[in-house]
Design a protein around this nucleic acid. Sequence first.
DNA 1: TAGATTGTTAATCGATTAACAATC
DNA 2: TAGATTGTTAATCGATTAACAATC
Lengths: 205, 205
Amino acid sequence: MNADKIPDIIITRLPVYLRALQHMADNGIKNTSSQELGESVGISAAQIRKDISQFGEFGKQGTGYSIPYLLDKLREILKVDRLWDVIIVGAGDMGHALARYQGFANRGFNAVMIFDNDKDKVGQKIGDLTIEDTVDLIEKVKSAGVKIAMLTIPATVAQDTADKLVQAGVKAILNYAPISLNVPEDVKVQYIDPATHLQRMTYYL
Amino acid sequence: MNADKIPDIIITRLPVYLRALQHMADNGIKNTSSQELGESVGISAAQIRKDISQFGEFGKQGTGYSIPYLLDKLREILKVDRLWDVIIVGAGDMGHALARYQGFANRGFNAVMIFDNDKDKVGQKIGDLTIEDTVDLIEKVKSAGVKIAMLTIPATVAQDTADKLVQAGVKAILNYAPISLNVPEDVKVQYIDPATHLQRMTYYL
DNA sequence: TAGATTGTTAATCGATTAACAATC
DNA sequence: TAGATTGTTAATCGATTAACAATC
C-alpha cells in the first residue's frame, strides 16, 4: 500500500472500474486484463494499470487480474466493503426515486431516513421509510452518526440545508440541487444536475 | 472567436459558470468579476478568466463581466440559446422524476417523448407526456429528428437501447443506467449514477 | 486620476502515454 | 518454453497558476 497522497482524479475512476468488474463478475467472468477492462470503460490500458498499481500489486504478468480479488481490493480501498447509512433530504419526485432505488444496497449504501419540510408530507411512507420533519434533521442525523446525505431540494434552500448537514456532522453530500455549495474543506460534494450534464454535450452537437 | 480546438475540460466547466451567473442574475446582480464568480463555484479566478477568454474578450478591465452579456455569450457557445428536444427512455421512478422535472425549460431543454417496453405502462400519462412503446423508438425519434436522450432503464438493456438510439440518430446520451456504454466517436455520453458518485466520496471518510 | 480587473504569457505542476524489463 | 501481461520508468502532453502589462 502506497502512503503517498493519491490524486483525486484516480479516485474518481476507481468506482467506474469497480462497476465494470462487478458487471463481469455477474456474468461469471473470473479474470480480465487492463486491455479488456480499458475497452469496457473507455480508458487506456496503461492508465488502468497505473491507477490500480497506486494501491498495490494486484495483477499477475501473463494472466492479468483476478476479478474477485480485484473487486475485494477496490471495495476495500473505496471503503465500500461495508454498508454506509445515507439520508435523503427532500421528498419530491427525485427524493422518492432515490428512496425506492434498488441499486444502493449491493454497492455499499443504505437509505435510513428521508426528510421534508412540508408538514403535509411528514408521516407519509416511501417504501420502508417514513418522511420526517426537516426541523429534526440536525438532531436525528447527529445522534445516528450518519455521514452521507443526498440533497434533492430546491436550489433556493440548498445552501441553508447544506449548512445544517455540516452542523450535523455529514461529510459527504450528493447534491441534486442545481447550485454550487460552499462547505468546509473536509466535506466532499458531488454534483448531479441533469441540465448541467446535458449542457456539456450540446456544445458538440 | 477562437477556431482552435477547445479542451473538453473547459467545456465541462462552462455550464457551471452559466448556472452560477444565472443565479446571480436572478438575484438582480448586474456585474461580477472572475474573483467573485470563482469563489461562488470553487474555481480559481485565473482559470475562470482563461476559460472564458478562449471564446472572446467578454470582460472589461476594472469592472469585470456584465452578467447579462456573459450569460448570452455562454448560452450561445454551449448552444443552449435555443430549446432542444429530449426524449426519456424508461418510465420507472427516475424516468417519472425527469418527465416532471421543472428545471429543463429555462436551461435549454424540452422533454418531448417518453418510452417504456412495459405494455401495461404504454398509454399512461406523465405530466404532458404519454408513455410510448419502445418498439417504436427508432422510427419516432428518427422522424422527429431528436438528438438528445436520457436513459433510465436497467443496466442489462442499456447497451442494446443505446445502440437503438444511435441508429435513430441520437448524438448525446445522458445515461442513468449503472453501466459504461460503447458508442461511436461522434456520440457523447454523460453518466449519472448515484452509487458511483457516492463511492467517489467514501474513500475520504 | 487611481484603483480594479481583464486577457495573456511564461513557469509550474500534474496527468497520460509509450515502452519494456520482469515474470507469470 | 513461448506468449501474454503486469508494474514502472521516462518522455510527452496538457492543465493550472502566478504575474503583470494593458486598460477600463
